[in-house]
Write a protein that binds this DNA or RNA. Structure first.
Ligand SMILES: [Zn+2]
Ligand SMILES: [Zn+2]
Ligand SMILES: [Zn+2]
Ligand SMILES: [Zn+2]
Lengths: 146, 146
DNA sequence: CTTGAAGCTATAGTTGCTAGAGACATTAGC
DNA sequence: GCTAATGTCTCTAGCAACTATAGCTTCAAG
């Protein structure tokens, strides 16, 4: 049996994050010790490691919630899980495309600046005028982190 | 003079976002009409377009705040602005590297799954065990959107 | 047996907006 | 001139996915 701190250390997840996951129902309520401290077993560690890994791969908590409930039914077909993964792949590919364009623009900006006064700075100039950009990098819609 | 709606349409920024930018001090308080409605001139439009463009390029509002205050002093040297742009470029490059690794892992996952039961699903399996991954894609630290 | 680390709850803050409620202003049609 | 439809006003609350703080209690080492 692991305390929350050991569990977090094993899974690479901070203690408040574990409590947060429990609060939003991603982890089941942990059993408690006599002194009211959470205690975890091997299954909880596996589940938390799954969450951590999926987060590392950029899945949202909502997607992870679905993946977890799928993995709780091992006899079901896996098409739904695969669809979630493919959607995540598509999302990553979209971000990749956008970041590639951003990188190109940022490189252009910093390379073109010859380093004088702000009034002549190419960085400031380009930021003020998208028509100076070489690509259409504008923000289409929603994203999030990884 | 533009109302907030026209300004937003011109700059490609939603009305509540403009009010939010004013609230956090990124835009100066706008003048008001007799009926207490905000009115904007050409300078406000330029400033808002600058913000929008910088957001599109992934700069944080904090970075944009600094860039704006730099651009308000046109006689100063531009090294600080260039440093902000280079930091943003570095950030984009870090995200790009990470997303590239994620893409590889996700592709591996979906390709390896032969589509049977959840119990045999490669997607679920890999999510549960990072040692099945081909790269070290783990989340080092902070990120945010672009 | 004492002390310091680790745990507990509950609340609030982060970033960059977005959505809603309910009241006032402006504009278009008749 | 009047009314209805937008547009704008303020204020508050909510989103993701945590992180931080405060003020407790419990546990483990010396
Ligand atoms: Zn410069
Ligand atoms: Zn541009
Ligand atoms: Zn599968
Ligand atoms: Zn992995």
């Amino acid at each position: 049996m692991l305390t929350i701190g050991k569990l977090g250390a094993q899974a690479g997840v901070k203690v408040p994050t574990i409590r947060y996951y429990e609060q939003i129902g991603l982890l089941p309520e942990a059993g408690r010790s006599a002194g009211n401290q959470r205690l975890y077993g091997r299954k909880a560690l596996e589940r938390l490691a799954f969450i951590r890994h999926a987060r590392d791969l950029g899945f949202t908590l909502e997607a992870i919630r679905d993946l977890l409930s799928l993995s709780d039914n091992p006899e079901q077909p896996c098409v739904a899980a695969d669809a979630i993964a493919r959607a995540q792949l598509a999302e990553v590919e979209r971000r990749l495309a956008r970041l590639t364009a951003l990188k190109a623009e940022l490189e252009r900006m910093v390379v073109q600046c010859v380093g004088g006064k702000i009034a002549d700075c190419r960085v400031i100039e380009v930021l003020g005028d998208h028509s100076l950009c070489s690509t259409d990098h504008r923000h289409p819609e929603s994203e999030s982190s990884p």
